[in-house]
Computed example of a mutant assay.
Amino acid sequence: MSVAALPDLDLTRVRSGPDLPVQMVPDLQLTRARDMGPVPVAPMAELDTGRAADDGVRTAAPLGAVVCRYCRNTQAAGLLCDNCGMRLPRVRPAAGAAVAGKPAADDDGWRACSSCHTPVRPGKPCPECGTRAQEEA
């Protein structure tokens, strides 16, 4: 089925045949550079890398209550803020290890996360993976 073109339609499609003969452009830089020959390499003694010499002292990970940098909520436990859900500046507990102050099993209302088995309170997001724990029945 053939359809006639609209008379007011501006045709912008490029024709399939070439309009001009192919011309070589002598100044066009191709993808490969020519051989530059031996380039002298010398260290730059005056270059400041912006780093101080390593003294071996490391900043201790924050312990206890931390303040969320997004909503300023102060929270004592967990890797995710209970108010806004953003990650808190804490150290992740080792896999399978109980967090200090948290029981490893179901006593005191703690449960294992269904995704990563980290101790979590029912109804709260998991501090490791963010999966919300199911409420107790």
Rank of each mutant, 00 (worst) to 15 (best):
M24C: 05
V25G: 11
V25T: 02
P26Q: 01
D27T: 07
L28E: 12
Q29T: 12
R34Y: 00
D35F: 07
D35S: 13
M36D: 05
M36I: 06
M36H: 03
G37V: 00
P38T: 09
P40A: 11
V41S: 13
P43E: 07
P43F: 06
M44D: 02
M44E: 10
A45F: 10
D48T: 11
T49N: 05
T49A: 05
T49F: 15
G50Y: 14
R51M: 08
A52R: 15
A52F: 14
A52C: 14
A53G: 04
D55R: 09
D55K: 00
V57H: 14
V57L: 14
T59N: 11
A60E: 03
A60P: 15
A61F: 11
P62D: 04
P62W: 01
P62E: 08
L63H: 07
G64N: 01
V66D: 02
V66Q: 02
V67Y: 03
V67Q: 10
C68D: 05
R69Q: 02
C71W: 07
R72Y: 00
R72N: 07
N73L: 08
T74Q: 15
T74P: 15
T74A: 13
Q75E: 09
G78E: 03
G78R: 00
L79T: 01
L80F: 04
C81Q: 00
C81M: 06
D82F: 02
N83S: 11
G85L: 11
G85P: 06
M86L: 07
L88K: 01
P89S: 01
P89L: 02
V91Q: 15
R92C: 10
R92T: 09
P93H: 14
A94C: 07
G96E: 08
V99H: 03
A100I: 10
A100Y: 12
G101K: 08
A104N: 03
D106W: 08
D107M: 15
D107Y: 04
D108S: 08
W110Q: 06
W110R: 01
R111Q: 11
C113W: 02
S114N: 00
H117M: 12
T118H: 08
P119S: 06
P119A: 05
V120C: 05
R121G: 00
P122N: 07
P122S: 15
P122D: 14
P125R: 04
P127D: 11
C129T: 06
